[in-house]
Nucleic acid binder design. Structure first.
Length: 423
RNA sequence: GUGGCCGUAGCUCAGUUCGGUUAGAGCGCCAGGUUGUGGCCCUGGAGGUCGGGGGUUCAAAUCCCCUCGGUCACCCCA
């Protein structure tokens, strides 16, 4: 096989995650898992690939499904797709395993959408989130929104706006869609060309347009609040009361229409103010009361959210959040003999739970000390012919000018433990 | 999917307007100054398919075409 004209590289919109970013992501995910489990959510891991039909239920009028999906024919002819989001897979899992309700689960994982990449938008992107199925109680809505809000705060994000809306239940939504459709039909001549196409496919999506021309039309569009049934209105009122009681601040966003078709009643979105980029939504979610039924299960209420890990990291960086990563190596062994001592000492230290490394190929004392410095280790342990003869090692503090000292070779682990590895 | 801008050393970038000797800088890396001591300093060194392919020309990093990638916006969304 001939070598490629150019070396292989990641596909468009895909990236290698390297240290220290991997460490930031791991820390964020761990923090999220902690918070979700504190609230009684259990981890779930649906597969990355599902039958295409699972995702079609997400919304056959949405770009996510119609244009952006990585779908292909499997070897047996089945139409399958890489998941563009996790809610549909979780709902499918609910139908398949019929767990006890309420089923409260959290997840962390990659999703795939074939979009044109830009800042904060990648073809492979990570989300963390929760889903809670089988409960209609507005207090659950408040719990879920609060968990999302607290998670963002726990990650260190400072400037976040929470937008909340209710798009009504199934019937409210259907009536509202018709009202908007007929309104937009009347104003068709005032709409931009792309907005006209959107209006036919999915009228609600026109409402959160950014084009000035369409904004003027949208300003006078029918209001959702006028189309919500008393029951929906009451549910929404209790969600907001719950948020008030829990001290979660939010803004009502009457035109907040989220991208996926399955949303009902409560919808919400988190916007990071530090992100001036177009992609500034760091999370969102809502109720999807009909989704499980659409996937062949029993009528089941559900609500959840997803937070975009990539965008949160971008926002944290834009806010100037601290991003130091503690070095994992605490001790660096400098061996001036043939290297066998470094081999044995690093092994001994690691077995004792102390991060240890050394320089392969030896090199001058100076070069090994440079390597020790770069490793971030707190301690350098030096071994040369003098130490070997005396049965000791020399321990040097790389972060202070304290004098180095000789320590019995067999007592090194105990000595490092006694001195500590931090600061 | 559409449009603007951008691809030069490991990294950040000069050089491209108006083609012309061995393509530069800073940082990083390696070595020496200091035959057993890192960080600061000094000296030296290694390292480049100028994204890739084709074309124009006596001559291309520089001009033209194609292509790949990045970035920003639209669209969409986490």
């Amino acid at each position: 096989m001939a070598a490629p004209d150019q070396p292989f590289r990641t596909l468009a919109g895909m990236r290698d995650l390297l240290h220290p970013e991997t460490a930031h992501r791991r820390r964020l995910t761990a923090r999220f898992a902690e918070l979700a489990e504190l609230a009684g959510y259990q981890e779930v891991q649906p597969p990355l690939v599902e039958d295409l039909g699972v995702f079609l239920r997400v919304g056959e009028t949405t770009d996510v499904v119609t244009k952006e999906m990585y779908d292909f024919e499997d070897k047996d002819g089945t139409r399958v797709a890489l998941r563009p989001e996790l809610t549909a897979g979780v709902a499918r899992a609910f139908v398949q395993h019929h767990p006890q309700t309420p089923w409260k689960v959290w997840y962390a994982g990659a999703n795939f959408r074939h979009e044109r990449p830009q800042k904060g938008r990648y073809r492979s992107f990570d989300q963390v989130g929760v889903e809670a199925l089988g409960v209609d109680d507005p207090d659950l809505d408040a719990e879920v929104v609060t968990l999302a809000s607290m998670s963002l705060a726990a990650f260190g994000l400072r400037r976040v706006r929470l937008l909340v809306n209710s798009i009504g239940d199934h019937d409210d939504r259907a009536r509202y869609v018709e009202a908007v459709r007929s309104y937009l039909d009347d104003r068709r001549d005032d709409l931009s060309e792309p907005a006209r196409a959107t209006a036919e496919r999915n009228p609600l999506r026109v409402l959160d347009t950014k084009r000035p021309q369409d904004l003027a039309v949208v300003a006078d569009a029918p209001l959702l609040a006028d189309h919500r049934s008393p029951a929906s209105e009451e549910h929404f009122g209790r969600v907001l009361a719950g948020l008030d009681a829990l001290g979660v601040s939010y803004e009502l966003a009457p035109r907040l229409v989220r991208g996926l078709d399955y949303y009902r009643r409560t919808t919400f979105e988190f916007v990071a103010e530090a992100l001036d980029a177009a992609q500034n939504a760091v999370g969102g979610g809502g109720r999807y009361d009909g989704l499980v039924e659409d996937l062949g299960g029993p009528p089941t209420d559900g609500i959840g959210f997803a937070l975009g890990v990539d965008r949160i990291l971008l926002a944290l960086s834009a806010e100037g959040a601290p991003d130091e990563v503690a070095p994992s190596v605490q001790v660096f062994v400098v061996d001036l003999t043939d290297g066998a001592i470094a081999r044995d000492l690093t092994h001994e230290l690691r077995a004792a739970g102390i991060g240890a490394d050394r320089r392969f190929g030896g090199g001058s004392l100076k070069s090994q000390m440079k390597a020790a410095d770069r490793s971030g280790a707190r301690w350098a342990v030096l071994v040369g012919s003098d130490e070997v003869a005396a049965g000791v090692v020399t321990v040097r503090d790389l972060r202070s000018d304290a004098p180095q000292s000789a320590v019995p070779r067999d007592g090194l682990v105990a000595e490092i433990r006694a001195r500590g590895t931090t600061t």
